[in-house]
Nucleic acid binder design. Structure first.
Lengths: 271, 271
DNA sequence: TGGCCATTCCCCAGAAATGGGGAGTTTCAA
DNA sequence: TTGAAACTCCCCATTTCTGGGGAATGGCCA
């Protein structure tokens, strides 16, 4: 907490001195938020920060969550929010994690969207309309949702909502895009979703080449032809790569390489 | 709790905009950009818009790389950029499909990141370091990359880079997050990406069970013991799952299952 | 009822992967 | 100059995967 405050103050001083004049306040706000969430040491602290900036942006509520059915899922899932308790109870009772219309719409986008656009993004079923009506009943009037997706992880989003009778100002939505993404990233860090491992194994270029082709379904022999090396050499690279990751087969090898960024899904799914 | 937020509350611009005065310029810029890209009618027009705002943000170069529907349909990928031609030539010549380190790192994040953070995000091989050195040679000094992911559909990123000898202003990075996301969304719209991929193969429960254990490195025999079924049955489930995804081995099977959410890294990397 | 699907089980043969060993050259940095 | 790491190649034996057949059961739905 003290630490977080210090960062905020330092950041402001640093930003101002750097450009030598008053920074546009909204950017200063965003930057301070960025530094504060990076320094946040607990989920509770993060929640406080998001709550504060939510109000700064003219919203009343926020909800940052993985789109999973918390009751049923074995996944460790993130959920931080200040929505009304009735809504959370209803949400969990109905198992809306994956079927909530706002969540479904966010699966189609990388950019944030206002809830008024829901009807254009997805087909609203009768149940969806009930869910929306219900949300208005508990005080969630209008909102804006920022998707947060990372390949291989549960989908997520960060929503901001107004209280009944209030509207938000569209001028601030660009900032909401950043705030939502930064908040999600911080939550992910604090939840240990993909901790940065300093002992991450190092692969040689050739090892990575071989994994790349293996992930695309090539046999070691095919890889050797593609790379212009001997069959045994390709096998050797795969052996050494498995040893470094401490795994026993190429499936796990590919998954580990995907997980720590040695490979991408774009690489692996190419035809 | 609002502690440490005093510095935010005194935001003069916020107060001003609430009472109807002129918007802070930077927000006006962002909003104008949002409206302009939504209205853009061609890739060329979109490129011009991104170029303009790139310079406003204190960068010199941008590159929006769009990977459309990698696995299934053969839609052309979008690449819009104003990088030096030497760089594009180098990349097309040397790339050979293996993605550059910036792209790899972007697959691990939902939030933008400065290139200086690359070494923390992923393991850099010798070749990666050469690529980075090469990029500096052609004038791409430092940069910031905004990831853009949409589940099951397309992946990409939008990067902003400074010219040699220049630095960007960190105050503008929150805006870059929005600009990158909005530009990507626009590119996606202009490329005519279909909104919903409903062609995902359906897996039976048992097939998913078998893939789950296979992704964790188990042999079919081990899986059969875990699930209490016969060895041949486990083999049969894997066969059918491969057939449905149209892949030829378990490595690709696991990758596809991860990619479309039938599995997550949390599942696959459990000890 | 008949068709579809999920689930279970069985056979075979060839291809591929895995684990164990060893060894030479080059490159780069200490 | 020395050493570490990368890259290359080779041998062996065993396990595992893959693709090709076929078949019985039970549930669900039109």
């Amino acid at each position: 907490m003290r630490k977080g405050q210090g960062s905020v103050t330092d950041a402001a001083a640093w930003g101002a001195s750097r450009i030598g004049m008053a920074l546009p306040m909204v950017l200063a706000t965003a930057q301070k938020f960025a530094l504060a969430v990076e320094a946040a040491a607990s989920i509770g602290e993060l929640g406080d920060l998001i709550d504060a900036i939510t109000r700064e942006m003219g919203f009343r509520y926020f909800a940052l969550a993985h789109h999973v059915d918390i009751a049923r899922s074995a996944q460790p899932a993130i959920r931080i929010h200040n929505y009304p308790p009735e809504w959370e109870a209803y949400f969990d009772a109905e198992g809306l994690g994956r079927s909530d219309p706002v969540h479904r719409a966010s699966h189609l986008r990388n950019l944030g969207f206002p809830w008024t656009m829901l009807g254009e993004l997805i087909d609203l079923t009768r149940r969806d309309r009930e869910i929306i009506a219900r949300s208005k009943c508990v005080g969630l009037a209008d909102g804006y949702t920022v998707p947060a997706h990372i390949p291989g992880e549960s989908e997520g989003s960060c929503s901001f909502a107004t209280a009944a009778g209030r509207t938000y100002r569209t001028e601030w939505l660009p900032l909401a895009q950043f705030v939502g993404a930064a908040a999600f990233a911080a939550a992910r860090r604090l939840a240990g979703v993909r901790p940065i491992d300093s002992n991450r194994p190092h692969l040689s270029d050739r090892q990575r080449d071989c994994i790349y082709w293996a992930a695309r379904g090539k046999s070691d022999w095919e890889t050797s032809q593609i790379l212009g090396i001997g069959h045994d050499t390709a096998i050797q690279h795969m052996k050494e790569a498995r040893r470094r990751y401490g795994v026993i087969n190429r499936t796990q090898l590919a998954i580990h390489a995907l997980y720590d960024g040695a490979l991408t899904f774009t690489d692996a799914l190419k035809r």
